[in-house]
Amino acid sequence: MFEKKDSNYLEGLRNGDRKTIQIIYTNIFPKVRDFVFKNKGKHQDAEEIFHNALFQLTIRLKIDEVEIKSSFEAYVFTMCRNLWRKELNYRKKWVRKEEVKTLTREEYDHSEAIILQERWELFDEKIRLLSPNCQALLRAYFEKISYNAIVKQFKYASENVAFQRVFKCKKQLADLIKKDDNYKKLKG
């Protein structure tokens, strides 16, 4: 839940208040570091991710209002988790291409990361508007649970019915997203 201290954090970031930034580091960074450690990362990776998240959030605060429904800590943690996921995908891609390449800050696109995060927030909000069944079905589908298992878990008559249900839920989600004013801002 969003509390007074959370709005202090936001205000401090917006104003570049160094004391607030240090408090944010002290209170939140250790959790992000633990998460990155557990997910193939090092201390330096955690620092980079955390710094980027704070920078991107500050840019958003300067340009527009940012609505946070959870606590500030949970919000920053989610941002970091998403950034780390993007970074891991990026690294995987380079490993696949068998090229050794260091991700330099020049190549790092903050604006792209901001848009991805905002899309994530929009999609997350809309998923919560779907029926509990649709939400569970989509999550199962994207966790790559087989249609055979989905049929059993959701008690559908056949794999074709399961496919149709997944398809309908996804379309409902797409329709909800398209109706939101923010979609225009964030699309392509």
């Binding site: 891609k93 792209e112 994530w120 999609f123 994207f142 989600l173 797409a174 392509g188």
Partner: peptide
Amino acid sequence: EVALYQSINFHLNEDVEDDTI
């Protein structure tokens, strides 16, 4: 429409990259 669906896939599936920006 393709871009939106790709974006949704990215959101829900950790292995998919959203390169539609």
